[in-house]
Design a protein around this nucleic acid. Sequence first.
DNA 1: TTGTGACTCGTAGTCCGTA
DNA 2: ATACGGACTACGAGTCACA
Lengths: 73, 73
Amino acid sequence: MANKEDILIRFGRRVRELRAERGYSQEAFAHECELDRTYVGGIERGERNLALRNIERIAETLGVTLAELMKGL
Amino acid sequence: MANKEDILIRFGRRVRELRAERGYSQEAFAHECELDRTYVGGIERGERNLALRNIERIAETLGVTLAELMKGL
DNA sequence: TTGTGACTCGTAGTCCGTA
DNA sequence: ATACGGACTACGAGTCACA
């Protein structure tokens, strides 16, 4: 069912994939998002239960829609 | 375009639509989600910047994937 | 049946560092 | 370039009485 694993882990992995595809470092990406470097790291490690506004910022910075960002999660 | 309006408002409207389609009252829906009635009301009114775990609970209760829930937002 | 203000408490989110 | 920790502030989580 693909949905057993924690949502934060799955989301973090997805963000990391998309960020890396785009050739961003965490730091550069965080700067684009106007989020803290250590916070983005925490998100990618699945340690952060981030809220909708920041999810949207991340989607925008990655250049995907929210639906695309959530695809498969 | 279509993306100028605040994400919380758009998300809230989407939740309200899907909930109403399913014939839930806010109260019944909140009970299914194991969330407070007034909290769900706040979400639907776009007043709550809810975090990923609660977004997931809502998607589950509505019987849609996260990607479907975010569709068009 | 839903809206709203006010509230407590935990955590979202920032900033400093070390490795 | 990234992980991780401590200490901090702002805001999300969650509840209530009342309209």
